[in-house]
Amino acid sequence: MTNEQLIEHLSAAFPDAVVKQGKQYPEITVSKEILHAFMKNLKSDTKLAFDYLVCESGVDYPAFIQVVYHIESTSLQHFLIVKCNTENRETAVLDTVMDIWPTAEFHEREIYDLLGITFNHHTDLRRLFLDDTWGHPLRKDFKDDIHVVER
């Protein structure tokens, strides 16, 4: 599917979600309530068949934390960016997608470790890199006088 067709298809299928053509790839922003169902649909819909989660990253914004999913379909060769925002920064909770793409298990552990987003229904949500004495370093308000030297 080309990007235009993809956008058309998605906006028809999900009227709630915001679909737009980003700088490189189509982007879709979904609310956290429908995230899991939406993702499941992305994989099971034969016209979309997004079976390969390339990358899952978290970005800390002043009002919320955003999780960005880069998804590709290996059979149909199209690419989509899905974004989902948490409600606020204090209670950052999202649904896991590890049952859809197993690789998400570890990407989500990394995000939990570095940004402090809790993923519901994640079977093994532990810190991945750091030990428990650390905060969540990739948050913008992270302060660490011992390890961080600012010039």
Binding site: G22, V54, S57, V59, V68, H70, I81
Partner: peptide, 29 residues
């Protein structure tokens, strides 16, 4: 936001840069 993928010797390497227009990136993944 910008995403670039290349093929390294080990597989697909992706760079995800979120920029807020300053000289430093807002977030790099």
């Amino acid at each position: 936001e910008f995403y670039q993928r290349v093929e390294t010797a080990r597989g697909e390497f992706g760079v995800y840069i979120v920029s807020d227009g300053k000289k430093n990136p807002y977030r790099v993944k």
